[in-house]
Design a protein around this nucleic acid. Sequence first.
DNA 1: CTTCATTGGTAATGATATATCACCAATAAT
DNA 2: ATTATTGGTGATATATCATTACCAATGAAG
Lengths: 291, 291
Amino acid sequence: MKRSDIPYLDDLRAFETTAQCGTVRSAADELSLTHAAVSRRINRLADMVGTPLFERSGRGLRLTAAGDRLAEVCRRSFDDLSRTIVSIRESQATDTGAILLSCERSVAMRWLIPRLSEFQDTHPEIAVHLSVGGGPVDSKQNRATLALRRLDFAIVDGWSVVPLFDETIGPVMSPDMFSDFEQGDYIALGSNTRPDAWDDWLRRNPDAPRPRERRMFDHHFLMVEAASSGLGVGLVPHIVALDDINRERLTAPLGFDPDGSRYGVLHPSQVPLDENAVLLLEWLRNRSRNI
Amino acid sequence: MKRSDIPYLDDLRAFETTAQCGTVRSAADELSLTHAAVSRRINRLADMVGTPLFERSGRGLRLTAAGDRLAEVCRRSFDDLSRTIVSIRESQATDTGAILLSCERSVAMRWLIPRLSEFQDTHPEIAVHLSVGGGPVDSKQNRATLALRRLDFAIVDGWSVVPLFDETIGPVMSPDMFSDFEQGDYIALGSNTRPDAWDDWLRRNPDAPRPRERRMFDHHFLMVEAASSGLGVGLVPHIVALDDINRERLTAPLGFDPDGSRYGVLHPSQVPLDENAVLLLEWLRNRSRNI
DNA sequence: CTTCATTGGTAATGATATATCACCAATAAT
DNA sequence: ATTATTGGTGATATATCATTACCAATGAAG
């Protein structure tokens, strides 16, 4: 993902504050600025996005649809950042001895957390701090952390990789939607995090029934939830659908095909893993053997 | 939440790029800056956070534990922002006629989405675009949107509120953890989004068994998932635990008590709701009648 | 209808922030 | 020992940006 699309935070903050306050002038008060400064920032942001964020309504402003979406993402992101920063400020050196395990959100929710209690039962003395986040690992070297990742990026020097299993993806749906799916009477559910997933899959599976319609979600895990709730057919990794298939909340009539990528655990190769981390790593390998 | 804890985006971006690249100099190249500028930004950010984000390692840097956490939040937030911005750029006027329904993440996943298919079955012609996000509603007036919210903030002028139900919260756990809970041999699972939830609840329920330990998650829905997976006892709103209780994946031995707040649907009062939105609103009221 | 207090938008200017250019110290490889 | 890296820092020139004026448009009050 290119980051060239990110404007200045100060612009975003001015915009978000204005969205909350409702008027430029009250936002300016809140930010200890003049309304002129706020106005400039908002306009520059709108230029950058390519769409007006506000439209005039009487003597005030109202958000456009695009502005509404952006405002909500801003608020969430700022909340996340703010919360993490105060949390870091407070929890100085609280994490003594804990293992930091980083993992993608969907995998954490649908695979890791449901199995983690087993590990905790056998090793109650080991504290595992779970940190959600995917994508390339952050730096050449960071803390003695394990990172469970989809290996779709270049491995940075200084990290060791323990491969776990191949990623396989396939269409999944609520069992009572199977006949609709066979007849091509289904909505394809996608996520904006992997926008080309359906196109790629349909190209590789020319005989599969074509979707009647498409529907995008902002997050992968919302899409999975929507699939198990019968809103349509989701294209998901096997690992994420596993438990719901066993519970018969989902079926995968066409099975799962490898998409080339694989999952693995990354850890810094310079610093040797401590014994707790080795235990967790071994447990991860065992648990993922039959996927 | 005060937003005074948010530093400049340019600092965050310099930090995040450095975390990804591994060295200040390569990050400076990427950002078309000199290494001096990047170094300054990182140091200022570290001052703001109150903790060193990097520590020297040979001639390079490595993230500290705090830096690691912050880097991951930065990456996620930037990805989110970047993705929505390009998505807004592309999808100009794609959302014609769709209802925008905004809803908190946890409630969307554990309550709304599982029920939404029912609404879609009876009204397949109505497209509902779901947008996750909670907290105060953004502007005095925005699009013809419905927002399902916990009403723990001041209602802005220009919005109408349709109350739905009172919020009740209570401790929930996997059924086989019940005896441990009774004996006070349990881990209290909390989320950083509502850090005082357990303290408040324990104060209001002095006879309830006290937790042996605490464990915080970065997000509410991770905590709920951890509770149903048997990692401990979560303190969650009834609406979020409802389905898992019916499926007997969770029990709530002490039931749920009102915590003073309530849920409702917000919509702009100036613009009249179109008929589709009225249908959705009515459906929401019916579905939430027995909570 | 007029007046007045709002609203947001904009051009020019001066204050502020900041990137650069030097340096330096420390490390690693040759 | 030498050289090419790394990151850090002080002074200065630069460029950003907030302010101060203004203006147009709207809505309420008289």
